[in-house]
Design a protein around this nucleic acid. Structure first.
Lengths: 200, 200
DNA sequence: CTTGGAATTGAACGCCCGTTCGGTTTATCC
DNA sequence: GGATAAACCGAACGGGCGTTCAATTCCAAG
């Protein structure tokens, strides 16, 4: 038995990525073996090397794909307009996007140290692109007198950290649904930048 | 050569913990070998087992020690009194404590998944004790009409996530010193809970 | 119906892992 | 100063690691 019937690179390829994403998120890159990934897909370990030159490249692709999705999704979700509107949209977008892809997000934040220097640089560059988004919004908000911040740079990383933290506790079927969580965080974001409208 | 002159468990023991902490924080628990830890200490791998029954216990002790330090340090730093005062103290305490122990903090947040189920439970229990601190402060603040929050529970985890994020970017010798960072985060915390005094 | 490439197996390679253990040197206690 | 325990070395154990490769089977095109 060598080539099983029904085998198809168009099917197996995505399954390899999905399995790697699940396992890397659950146990960490270093703790997951190529044999485990292969077992999850239902193939032998050797066959993985038709889909990636090595384990490291698998991680690199997962991260870059995620960041590409993130940046292009925001490009489409960005309403433009005044800073308050954009901040509200950004907060809600970030929560939604992160709740929809917990595994990819987890990897992107936790496995930076598992990347080779070259891959790290590539990933870090895109990550900074994303961090620049709220920073611009906050600077505009301060300039327009709609936000009060001692340090927009720190505030923007604080904002991202706050929002990203949602993945550490949110579970479907819990006390709050996604829409409620989105609203709560959007409101907290407004307070963070000194532009709170009202809460209750 | 078997027992080197000058060898002393009272010296080597802490060095083992320190080396493990450094390496685990830098590369991750799974990616660090006992031989690497031993090499950092300057002993053979086998000698490590005079100081820990196994690798897992080493991680467990690092985490529990850190959380014990964290809880007892706050017990001493807690000024009591009104919620606004306590929140300011908590935010400043959290920033200070985390900036002083970046490695221990990193491990405590990133290596939860590397713990055996029993060890995870023990660590998680103490972690929830700490999370209960801001939650109480925020509930008291809302009850006293000094804070405006739709959901104190979510706000408290958001607060912790925001504060802990300082370790992802702060470096000594950068644009801001620790005292400045402490103040900025304390101010952001006030805004987060709807109690901002003033910024600029 | 043949042919050629695509998809995969399964064995193998060398290496490193966590852990154990007998032996050896150093410190300590009486 | 002789015995006992502490601290450590160095080799070894079985096993899993990432990766390679010849062989094999399936599929699609001619």
């Amino acid at each position: 038995m060598a080539r099983p019937s029904g085998s198809d690179a168009g099917v197996t390829g995505p399954r390899v990525h999905a399995a790697a994403e699940r396992l890397f998120a659950r146990s960490g890159y270093a703790a997951v073996s190529m044999r485990q990934i292969a077992a999850e897909v239902g193939i032998g370990a050797g066959a993985l090397y038709h889909y990636t030159p090595d384990k490291q490249t698998l991680l690199r692709r997962l991260m870059l794909d995620h960041l590409k999705d993130l940046l292009s999704a925001w490009a489409e979700a960005d309403p433009g307009g005044d800073p308050i509107t954009r901040l509200d949209a950004f907060a809600r977008f970030h929560i939604r996007f992160h709740l929809d892809r917990p595994d990819a997000v987890f990897i992107a934040y936790m496995e930076l140290r598992s990347l080779d220097p070259d891959n790290f640089s590539a990933v870090e560059a895109r990550r900074k692109c994303y961090e620049a988004i709220p920073e611009t919004i906050l600077r505009d908000g301060v300039a327009a007198g709609r936000m009060r911040l001692a340090d927009p740079k720190v505030a923007s990383v604080a904002l991202i950290a706050m929002l990203t933290g949602v993945n550490t506790w949110y579970r479907d079927g819990g006390r709050l649904d996604r829409a409620a969580v989105e609203g709560i965080y959007a409101d907290l974001a407004m307070g963070l930048v000194g532009a709170r409208r009202g809460a209750g």
